[in-house]
Design a protein around this nucleic acid. Structure first.
Lengths: 229, 229
DNA sequence: CAATAATTTGACCGTTTGGTAAACATTACA
DNA sequence: TGTAATGTTTACCAAACGGTCAAATTATTG
């Protein structure tokens, strides 16, 4: 008998754990390049190095795979915003938020593109997630920013659009990577563009919020590339 | 005899013109939502309200359709940057560049998403365009910005990343529209978010470039939504 | 009004797609 | 070691896919 995904015994075997990981890794590769409809199970199976039915033993449908991927990524993706702290001082909080987002764009570009692809097609799978938990989280952080503005710690600005602009500018380096590289040319083909981007974006956002004075706040430089997710 | 696309007579008939328009309009709809691989000829034909063979009479392959679309959009898409003028004063040039890009995101979101989809999958069709004409145009405008900085008219900054950040922040309102709406909630469901975005982005960029004083420069407000492309 | 060219369609074709059935192989563990 | 549960593979299916063809229809024009 072969009932997929932890049938009789509730406990997941090592082999399940490993194979599912292997599949999701391959799926991330394919989905992030071609979107849901453009991706094929065959290609994912090939990248994962296993037969199609074998893959379908672990994830019964293409949608199940996609859903599993998206859920996992969405969670990780919002971590930097969750860390955004109302106790800290505005300049360093914003600086380190930008840095963390930029590090993610550098280290997990496929995750970013997966998300972008999903939103581009109308986000049918995560609509509820966006309108619920995401909106709630952003509302909360927007309130923090508004409080800073009210206290005169930063220039008054629309906190929602501030958050949008940090999202867009940082994720741009993952989602539009090929364009960025094409425009910068081969000289900047290493990871140097991320350092440049970090410097520029800090200047932009701190200046835009009237915080130039706090330029050299106690925020560390971008980390070297770490390991997996 | 039925040789497609202006055979004996060189002149394109009215009917050709109209049908090709009708097809590209439908194709834009489908490609912008699902990307090249995710789009199907059947769906495009259905949206265009004609039979599949009829559609294929005007565009022999799916790729031909996509190519025609991309070429047309890419050209329009760069117009605002071409208008970016070194003669004007920095504050108003940057302000009106932002406004134009934001107007495009508002009025032509599908075009923006088409482009985003293409870049996301690695831009195989427009790689040359990006590395050639686009890079050249950006290089040229970057030089203008650098000159402004050297002359002390704006704060020194990396002009390439400045351009990237204007692209990303403005296009975000087209490409991530569903997310933006989800976060802002129903109250801001009208076009008001574009006005808010315009105000915020001007503050951000002018502030970030040390140009707050020039805030009320001679740049008109965002235009009402105009007609077709 | 012919007749010729342009357009449209239904039927079709080979391939790819998402997914299944069942046989076979391997692992876990009593 | 035996056996039940888990994992893998080969062969396959129906639907959807990109695209073709020849026949039918509609415009254009001498």
């Amino acid at each position: 008998m072969a009932i997929p995904r932890a049938a009789k015994t509730q406990r997941r075997t090592r082999i399940q754990e490993a194979k599912e990981e292997q599949i999701l890794e391959a799926a991330l590769d394919v989905f992030s390049r071609h979107g849901f409809r453009g991706a094929t199970i065959d290609e994912i199976a090939e990248v994962a190095g296993m037969s199609k039915p074998n893959l379908l033993y672990y994830f019964r449908t293409k949608e199940a795979m996609h859903r599993a991927l998206i859920e996992r990524v969405l969670d990780t993706w919002l971590d930097p915003l969750r860390e955004f702290d109302d106790k800290g001082n505005p300049a360093s909080e914003i600086r380190s938020y930008i840095r963390r987002k930029l590090e993610m764009a550098r280290d997990f570009p496929r995750e970013s593109r997966l998300f972008a692809n999903e939103v581009l097609r109308g986000a049918p799978l995560i609509e509820d997630e966006l309108k619920g938990p995401l909106k709630q989280l952003v509302d909360e952080k927007a309130e923090v920013i508004r409080a800073w503005a009210k206290a005169g710690k930063i220039a008054g600005c629309d906190p929602y659009h501030l958050i949008f602009s940090i999202w867009s500018t940082t994720q741009h380096y993952a989602d539009f990577d090929v364009q960025v590289r094409a425009v910068l040319g081969q000289e900047k083909d290493g990871q140097g563009r991320f350092e440049d981007a970090a410097r520029y974006l800090e200047q932009l956002f701190l200046g835009g919020l009237g915080l130039e004075g706090d330029r050299r706040a106690e925020v560390p430089a971008m980390k070297e590339q770490p390991g997996g997710l």
